[in-house]
Protein backbone atom coordinates (compact mmCIF):
# COMPACT_ATOMS: atom_id res chain seq x y z
CA UNK A 1 0.00 0.00 0.00
CA UNK A 2 2.80 2.39 0.97
CA UNK A 3 4.57 1.44 -2.23
CA UNK A 4 1.44 2.26 -4.27
CA UNK A 5 1.10 5.68 -2.64
CA UNK A 6 4.73 6.41 -3.36
CA UNK A 7 4.29 5.42 -7.01
CA UNK A 8 1.21 7.57 -7.39
CA UNK A 9 3.03 10.51 -5.83
CA UNK A 10 5.98 10.10 -8.17
CA UNK A 11 3.62 9.83 -11.12
CA UNK A 12 1.91 13.09 -10.12
CA UNK A 13 5.20 14.92 -9.65
CA UNK A 14 6.40 13.65 -13.03
CA UNK A 15 3.18 14.84 -14.66
CA UNK A 16 3.50 18.30 -13.19
CA UNK A 17 7.13 18.47 -14.23
CA UNK A 18 6.32 17.45 -17.79
CA UNK A 19 3.54 20.03 -17.97
CA UNK A 20 5.90 22.76 -16.82
CA UNK A 21 8.53 21.69 -19.38
CA UNK A 22 5.89 21.64 -22.11
CA UNK A 23 4.71 25.14 -21.25
CA UNK A 24 8.29 26.40 -21.23
CA UNK A 25 9.00 24.91 -24.67
CA UNK A 26 5.82 26.45 -26.06
CA UNK A 27 6.73 29.83 -24.65
CA UNK A 28 10.26 29.57 -26.06
CA UNK A 29 9.02 28.74 -29.54
CA UNK A 30 6.67 31.68 -29.37
CA UNK A 31 9.58 33.95 -28.53
CA UNK A 32 11.59 32.54 -31.42
CA UNK A 33 8.78 33.46 -33.80
CA UNK A 34 8.87 37.01 -32.51
CA UNK A 35 12.52 37.29 -33.46
CA UNK A 36 12.15 36.19 -37.09
CA UNK A 37 14.32 38.14 -39.50
CA UNK A 38 12.98 41.64 -39.85
CA UNK A 39 13.44 41.52 -43.60
CA UNK A 40 10.66 38.97 -43.89
CA UNK A 41 8.18 41.08 -42.04
CA UNK A 42 6.59 44.23 -43.37
CA UNK A 43 7.79 47.29 -41.57
CA UNK A 44 5.27 48.75 -39.14
CA UNK A 45 5.29 51.79 -41.40
CA UNK A 46 3.57 49.76 -44.11
CA UNK A 47 -0.08 49.32 -43.46
CA UNK A 48 -1.00 45.70 -44.08
CA UNK A 49 -4.55 45.50 -45.25
CA UNK A 50 -6.59 42.44 -46.18
CA UNK A 51 -5.93 41.28 -49.72
CA UNK A 52 -8.77 42.45 -51.90
CA UNK A 53 -7.22 42.48 -55.34
CA UNK A 54 -8.15 38.96 -56.35
CA UNK A 55 -9.49 40.25 -59.67
CA UNK A 56 -5.95 41.19 -60.72
CA UNK A 57 -4.59 37.78 -59.81
CA UNK A 58 -7.48 35.93 -61.42
CA UNK A 59 -6.41 37.30 -64.77
CA UNK A 60 -2.63 37.52 -64.42
CA UNK A 61 -2.25 33.98 -63.09
CA UNK A 62 -4.37 32.52 -65.89
CA UNK A 63 -1.75 31.58 -68.46
CA UNK A 64 -4.23 30.87 -71.22
CA UNK A 65 -5.91 34.20 -70.67
CA UNK A 66 -2.74 36.28 -70.68
CA UNK A 67 -1.52 34.40 -73.74
CA UNK A 68 -4.67 35.55 -75.48
CA UNK A 69 -4.74 39.07 -74.18
CA UNK A 70 -1.09 40.09 -73.95
CA UNK A 71 0.01 41.77 -77.13
CA UNK A 72 3.45 42.63 -78.42
CA UNK A 73 4.32 46.22 -77.83
CA UNK A 74 5.05 47.86 -81.15
CA UNK A 75 8.72 48.74 -81.25
CA UNK A 76 10.52 50.02 -84.31
CA UNK A 77 13.50 48.02 -85.48
CA UNK A 78 16.75 49.20 -84.00
CA UNK A 79 19.17 50.85 -86.39
CA UNK A 80 22.09 50.43 -84.02
CA UNK A 81 25.30 48.95 -85.37
CA UNK A 82 28.35 47.55 -83.65
CA UNK A 83 29.00 46.14 -80.21
CA UNK A 84 26.95 48.28 -77.88
Amino acid sequence: MRYRLLSAGLLMVSGVALTVVGLAVTAASGNAQDTNPVSEQPSPAFEVVPFTDQACLDCHTDQAKVQTLAIEEEKPDSLSEGPG
Binding site: E40, Q41, P42, F46, V48, V49, F51, T52, D53, Q54, A55, C56, L57, H60, T61, Q63, V66, Q67, L69, A70, I71, E72, E73
Partner: peptide, 30 residues
Protein backbone atom coordinates in the same frame (compact mmCIF):
# COMPACT_ATOMS: atom_id res chain seq x y z
CA UNK B 1 4.41 39.16 -74.38
CA UNK B 2 2.46 36.93 -72.02
CA UNK B 3 5.59 35.88 -70.16
CA UNK B 4 6.26 39.48 -69.30
CA UNK B 5 3.02 39.83 -67.35
CA UNK B 6 2.16 36.34 -66.20
CA UNK B 7 2.15 35.75 -62.44
CA UNK B 8 3.10 32.28 -61.27
CA UNK B 9 0.37 31.74 -58.70
CA UNK B 10 2.08 28.87 -56.92
CA UNK B 11 5.48 30.51 -56.63
CA UNK B 12 4.26 34.01 -55.99
CA UNK B 13 2.05 32.80 -53.15
CA UNK B 14 5.25 31.94 -51.27
CA UNK B 15 6.57 35.47 -51.73
CA UNK B 16 5.90 37.90 -48.90
CA UNK B 17 5.03 40.58 -51.44
CA UNK B 18 1.96 38.57 -52.40
CA UNK B 19 0.40 39.74 -49.14
CA UNK B 20 0.35 43.27 -50.48
CA UNK B 21 -2.53 44.34 -52.68
CA UNK B 22 -1.57 44.69 -56.34
CA UNK B 23 -3.04 48.18 -56.48
CA UNK B 24 -1.05 49.30 -53.46
CA UNK B 25 2.03 49.38 -55.67
CA UNK B 26 0.71 49.38 -59.23
CA UNK B 27 -2.31 51.66 -58.79
CA UNK B 28 -5.13 50.90 -61.23
CA UNK B 29 -8.34 49.27 -60.05
CA UNK B 30 -8.95 45.68 -58.99
Amino acid sequence: PWQRVWIDAEQYAQDIHSRINCTSCHQGTA
